[in-house]
Each structure stands twice: as structure tokens, then as C-alpha cells.
Design a protein around this nucleic acid. Structure first.
Length: 484
RNA sequence: GCUCCGGUGGUGUAGCUCGGCCAAUCAUUUCGGCCUUUCGAGCCGACGACCCGGGUUCAAAUCCCGGCCGGAGCACCA
């Protein structure tokens, strides 16, 4: 009862048939670091596993060194990204290092007469497939199939010359299921295992075997892999295995990023359009981390999205809202004056402002100033000669000249201005640090409180600007914008 | 062309398995108000949805049929 309530709060529907243990896996191709899309797989799988106290497997489906060439650094990055998301895998598998297992199983299938070597070109086979009729290779004798297989392994055939197909049903009403390819020849060295192999399994074959061997009980997969279950079911039937429970989910599109794919990202980084995988404009986890988006926020975000089967298009605003809930209570506040303009205050001999670091916490920062301050150009622009406004937590002033900006001291009474829009932030003209904020591709220059240099690698709020992560301080402060 | 799947407010989501407690949940967005001090944070409030048409039933978001719309697969990619 209580447990059930907890599940509901976390937002994920219970998993059917979970009573005999839960083993789940996330199986990326490491052709780049994890993106928000991968994060969904990592988070939800892990969330379920921890809900049922099961086992979480990270499996690299890296069986195509040609079209989906893995990136060596991405393997390690995936591990780091999982840990960052508090989803450390219980087991890590590299398909490319487990080829023997796949060979062993396909050989069994061939001996059972359930797999055969096919020499048809793609075009030729497509004709047979569309016609719903078998090609001549389908009836090849078992011994001959095995001989061809041996020759494939020893490299006697060229790429594209021959493939191994799993026998399904050439007359199946769904053309997508008819005798699919289980192995093909790829004579390009693999980033991880070199030129050790030139016969590689397809995803459907590799995944079918691995899920079984590792006792995977529940599979979460994209709708694009909808046919995998029915394709792989043939193998499971031949071996007398039970297929895991499958839940499909739709594609997630993020408004702000549009359609992105790892390979497109990679190209744009190589061409210099982006500075690297951690460019703050990108939807990679390393980039989000750099901006100060917390892993907890990402987890909450995906749990809230749920596991629906329709394709969705969601805004980063939802992620930002989750992140804000987490960081707002702890992020220290600072003044960041962008486009700073110096204002001379007549009749003010200077003063000291004591401002809470965070309205919900103890601690304060102290701003000591003389009679000259800086405020944002965008603020002063809104005032006219004679207007009175307040320098937040300091004093009230009246504009007596706009160009050059000169004001006169009016008093300390907050009540005199009261309304929020007449309160602006400021900094002492003589005591501040230059600062540049990376915000959505723009560089925003300004000045910040000197104590910001003690916040390296932390997320703070620049008042009336937004939350940023302080990245470094070398002559000037560099901050990366997260969100408002 | 063949084969699958899905359609709840602007955006997501709960509810649909076992029809009534649903004049429909929660989050976010937008708007409005509040705040001894963030016009860009916070707090409070409001607006806003069951794709359409039939059928079954005392009763349908929930079941059935048809339509419309959207998505996916039919690769020697994952």
C-alpha cells in the first residue's frame, strides 16, 4: 500500500510481472556522448530497477564499425554520464567483445536449419521479399551453409557478397518480418577490437541473444524498434526461450533543440560550428552539466514525462522548472550588471549594503561603495530626469541628468519606492570584477561582485538575470547561463 | 503499396486493463495578484482538454464499429 503510493508519486506506472525480479538494460551505440535522448533511457531503466531492487545493465551495441562507427572516448563518457545521473550500472557489456557468443548461437541456428547464407543483392532480395517468396539460397543444405559460414569468418568473401539470414516466414503478411539479416561482412577495423572480426551481427540478432543470456526481464525500447520483438521472437521460439516483457515509447523531441542526432552533432562540432561536445548550446549531458543543470532535475524531468507510446515534443522549460526547484533554495545571489553605466550620486558619501546570500538561508554578502556606482544600461534607459528609484538594499536616488548619468541622494526609506520595478541592482564602480556570461550562443559582458570568484563550479543566481554556473576566474569571471 | 501503433487543456501527464466516486489528476506555460527590497526568483490564484460520428448501456475519456489525423517499420543502421 505504502509502496504503491510511493510509485505513484514518482510518476512511473508499475511494471507487470516484476515479482520474479527485474533485470533491465540500456543499450546505446557509443558513437557520441550521451544526450538528453539517451538520458531518458538511462534514467527510466534505472528508476525501474531501483524501484524493484533489480539489476541495471549498460550494454554497448557497437556492432557496426562502418555506418554507426563507435567513438572510443564515448564508452568512458557514457559510464561517467550514468554515474552523474546516479544510475551506475551493475554490469557493463561490450557487444564487440562478445562476438564468440553470437557466432556460437548462429551456428546452432544454422545446424537447426533456421538460418542460411544468402547471396542475393539487397535489390534482388527485396524483390523476393515484396513478392513473399523465398530465394534459392534458402534451401541450401546445412553442411554447405556451415562451409560458407566458415569461409565468411576466414575472410574469403567481400563486403556485401553474402549475409546470414534468420528463417522466419517469407509469406508473413508483414514484410518487415520476412527473413531478416543476422550477420553481414564489414571489413573495417573496429575502434575497440581492431580487425579481429569481419563478420558482424545486426542489432536484432546481438540484442536478442544478449537479452536472453543476461536474463533481461523487461525491455524499454523506442517505437522505431517496434518490430524487433516480432523479429526476434523467431529466434526465441527456435531455442524455446520466453521473450522479455516489452514496453515501447515514442520519440521525444525538445522544442529548443529541434531534431538532433549524434551524427549531425558530431559533424557540426568537427566543422567548428560548435566548440565541442560540451558547447552549452548542445543537448548533451556534458553541456547541461556545464550549465549547472543538476542530474536530479533531469531524472525528475523524465519521470514526469512518463513512458507513453506517442511521440512527444516537450520544452526545456519543464527541465528548467525542475532544476529551479532544486537550486533556488541553495543558490547564492549576486549582482551582475550587464552593459554597465557609471552613475555619480551627488550628496551621497558612500555606504555599505548587507544583502542575504539567499533569502532562505543565513549568510550575507557585503557591498561597500563610494558615491559612484554602476547599473545596467537597460535599467537607466527606462528612467527619465526626475525619476526616483532605489539601488537595491542601499538607498534611493533621483536622476538629475541622463547624459552623463548623474543622480542625487534622496534617502534610505524603502517605502519611498516600494514597488519592485523601481528597484534595480547595482555595483560599486570601483570594486567589481569583469564577467562574461555565455547565454544561448551570445556573450554577455558585464561586471559582478568580487566574491563571485569563490563560487567556482557552483550554480548561483544573478539577480534579475537568471541562474548561472560559475566556470572560472582568470582576469575575468566566466559564467554559463542555465535558465531564468 | 504492405504491416503495426497512437490520438486527454498551449506543452507533457494521470485516469482507460476491471464503464459510474471524472462537471477529469499533476506539472509546466500564459495571465492576474502578493512580497521590509530579485519589473527576470519566490508565494497565491485564474484560464484552459477527453479527435469526429455512430453503437452497447440506467451510465462511456473508459467497451465495440467506422472515419479523420499523427507516428513507425518494410536497411548487409542502431
Amino acid at each position: 500500500m505504502e509502496e504503491k503510493k510511493e510509485k505513484r508519486e514518482r510518476g512511473l506506472p508499475p511494471l507487470p510481472m516484476a515479482d520474479k525480479g527485474v533485470v533491465m538494460r540500456f543499450a546505446p551505440n557509443p558513437n557520441g556522448p550521451a544526450t538528453l535522448g539517451s538520458a531518458r533511457g538511462i534514467v527510466i531503466n534505472h528508476e525501474y530497477v531501483s524501484l524493484y531492487d533489480g539489476t541495471f545493465i549498460l550494454r554497448f551495441d557497437d556492432t557496426d564499425p562502418k555506418n554507426k562507427r563507435p567513438m572510443l572516448e564515448a564508452y568512458e563518457q557514457y559510464l561517467k554520464d550514468c554515474e552523474w545521473l546516479s544510475a551506475k550500472p551493475d554490469r557493463v557489456l561490450y557487444a564487440s567483445k562478445r562476438m564468440g557468443i553470437y557466432y556460437e548461437h548462429v551456428e546452432k541456428l544454422m545446424k537447426m536449419g533456421k538460418a542460411y547464407a544468402c547471396f542475393c543483392s539487397r535489390e534482388k532480395f527485396k524483390k523476393f521479399k515484396d513478392a513473399g517468396r523465398p530465394c534459392s539460397h534458402r534451401n541450401c543444405a546445412t553442411e554447405d551453409t556451415l562451409t560458407i559460414w566458415e569461409n565468411m569468418l576466414s575472410g574469403e568473401y567481400d563486403e556485401g557478397e553474402v549475409v546470414i539470414r534468420v528463417k522466419t516466414d517469407m509469406a508473413h503478411k508483414d514484410p518487415a518480418l520476412r527473413d531478416w539479416v543476422a550477420f553481414r561482412i564489414v571489413k573495417i577495423p573496429h575502434p575497440l577490437v581492431g580487425d579481429k572480426y569481419n563478420v558482424w551481427p545486426t542489432l536484432d540478432f546481438e540484442s536478442a541473444i544478449e537479452d536472453r543470456i543476461n536474463g533481461v526481464t523487461h525491455i524499454l525500447r523506442g517505437k522505431d524498434l517496434m518490430d524487433s520483438e516480432r523479429r526476434q521472437q523467431y529466434i526465441y521460439n527456435y531455442f524455446g526461450w520466453d521473450y522479455p516483457f516489452v514496453k515501447l515509447w515514442g520519440r521525444v523531441k525538445i522544442h529548443e533543440f529541434g531534431k538532433f542526432s549524434t551524427s549531425v552533432l558530431k559533424r557540426k562540432i568537427e566543422s567548428g560550428e560548435y566548440t565541442g561536445w560540451d558547447d552549452p548550446r548542445l543537448p548533451t549531458l556534458v553541456a547541461l552539466k556545464r550549465r549547472g543543470i543538476t542530474p536530479e532535475a533531469i531524472r525528475n524531468f523524465f519521470v514526469q514525462l512518463g513512458v507513453g507510446e506517442n511521440d512527444i515534443s516537450v520544452s526545456m522549460k519543464n527541465l528548467y522548472a525542475e532544476n529551479r526547484k532544486l537550486i533556488d533554495p541553495v543558490a547564492n545571489r549576486y549582482f551582475f550588471v550587464w552593459d554597465p553605466v557609471k552613475v555619480i550620486i551627488h550628496g551621497f558619501e558612500g555606504g555599505t549594503a548587507r544583502i542575504p546570500l539567499n533569502p532562505k538561508k543565513d549568510g550575507e554578502r557585503i557591498l561597500k561603495t563610494e558615491s559612484e556606482v554602476v547599473i545596467s544600461y537597460s535599467d537607466i534607459q527606462k528612467f527619465q530626469n526626475g525619476d526616483i528609484f532605489r539601488l537595491k538594499d542601499l538607498c534611493n536616488i533621483r536622476i538629475i541628468s541622463l547624459d552623463p548619468p548623474i543622480a542625487e541622494f534622496v534617502g534610505y526609506e524603502l517605502d519611498a519606492v516600494r514597488r519592485g520595478k523601481n528597484i534595480v541592482h547595482w555595483l560599486p564602480a570601483k570594486d567589481n570584477l569583469p564577467c562574461v556570461v555565455h547565454k544561448e550562443g551570445d556573450l554577455i559582458e558585464g561586471v559582478v561582485e568580487t566574491s563571485v570568484k569563490n563560487e567556482i563550479d557552483r550554480v548561483v543566481q544573478f539577480e534579475r538575470f537568471g541562474f548561472v554556473r560559475i566556470e572560472q576566474f582568470k582576469e575575468k569571471v566566466t559564467a554559463i547561463f542555465a535558465h531564468e
